[in-house]
């Protein structure tokens, strides 16, 4: 594991770290640097606005030095706004669990067992992963309305279902990369399939499972449409709905908006950065197996 982990670390993109750089060709480095700088500035303007406005007690849509204060964050963390974040955590947590646990068992079966029509099935699952969720909204809404399901838990379960296909794919790639020898050795020692699953496959594929779970969490955290349509009570709405409410009003409080956006985005950005090594390992496993 140690060796594997260190190999994957190298694949990880590190902003300040080592990056494989090709030998220089041509000599217009000044031009390249100028273009890079210009692009970086252009790209960073929206981000700089977000940070400056969040710390500005008199924030506007313009970039200017802030009247520094943290009152925006204080008001963003007020109890009535906090509830949306709690709902977001609940929705994403349920959705991730609903998607990841079945995906693990299914992925093992897809990776190791002989199944009829295995490749067409896998291809269909990959296709499902690419189906835009927006098209599912109308039929699912109709169904939920008929059965009185328009609330937070069914909506979260449905969000989990939309994340399942790709999670299954990520975990299958991770299990594919585990050498068969380990399992055969365990079988010779007369370990049951369940034992093999939990004692061998689970620990070794844990980075892949984590990547899948993080994917599911990020997707559910960012989803705007499914909660707004499938949850009828406004008390159960997650943060994106709250943010949409901020900008729908006549007087937009830009400082509060920016601060709330930072609080809302922070968990996702942190998960991404903390797990980028896990992500790349998932991609790599997929590549080597093909």
């Amino acid at each position: 594991m140690g060796v594997v982990a260190s190999l994957e670390k190298e694949d990880l993109y590190k902003p300040s770290g080592r990056l494989v750089v090709l030998p220089k060709f041509g000599g217009v480095t000044v031009g390249v640097n100028a273009v890079t700088l210009l692009l970086a500035l252009l790209f960073s303007v929206p981000l700089i606005w977000l940070v400056l406005a969040a710390f500005d007690s008199q924030a506007t849509q313009q970039l200017h030095l802030p009247h520094f204060s943290v009152e925006n964050f204080e008001s963003a963390l007020a109890p009535n706004l906090m509830w949306a974040l709690v709902n977001s955590v609940a929705i994403s947590g349920i959705a991730t669990a609903v998607a990841t646990v079945p995906a693990f068992f299914g992925a093992y079966s897809f990776s190791r067992h002989r199944l009829p029509f295995k490749n067409p099935l896998l291809f269909s699952i990959l296709f499902l992963a690419g189906v835009p969720t927006s098209i599912l909204i109308i039929p699912v809404f109709e169904f939920f309305q008929n059965w009185n399901l328009l609330s937070i838990v069914p909506a979260s379960i449905f969000l989990g279902i939309t994340c399942l296909p790709f999670e299954l794919y990520i975990i299958k790639n991770a299990i594919d990369a585990i050498p068969l020898d380990l399992e055969e050795a365990a079988r010779v020692e007369r370990a049951s399939t369940l034992r093999i699953l939990f004692r061998i496959i689970l620990p070794i594929s844990l980075p892949g499972i984590a990547a899948a779970a993080i994917y599911g969490f990020i997707m559910s955290w960012g989803n705007f449409l499914i909660p707004i349509v499938l949850i009828s009570s406004s008390d159960q709405q997650p943060s994106p709905t709250q943010i949409f409410g901020f900008i729908s009003g006549i007087n937009v409080q830009y400082g509060l908006l920016a601060a709330y956006c930072i609080i809302y985005s922070f968990p996702v950005v942190a998960l991404y950065l903390a797990s980028s090594s896990v992500f790349t390992s998932g991609f790599k496993a997929g590549r080597t197996h093909r």
């Binding site: 902003p15 929206p46 981000l47 960012g222 705007f224 994106p240 996702v268 991404y272 950065l273």
Partner: peptide, 23 residues
């Protein structure tokens, strides 16, 4: 530029929309 591009990618769509709507 690497950090900025990665940061922009990680932001949830709602945040992206709000920032761009503002600017």
């Amino acid at each position: 530029i690497g950090t900025i591009a990665v940061l922009a990618t990680t932001l949830p769509p709602t945040t992206v929309a709000v920032i761009w709507w503002t600017v």
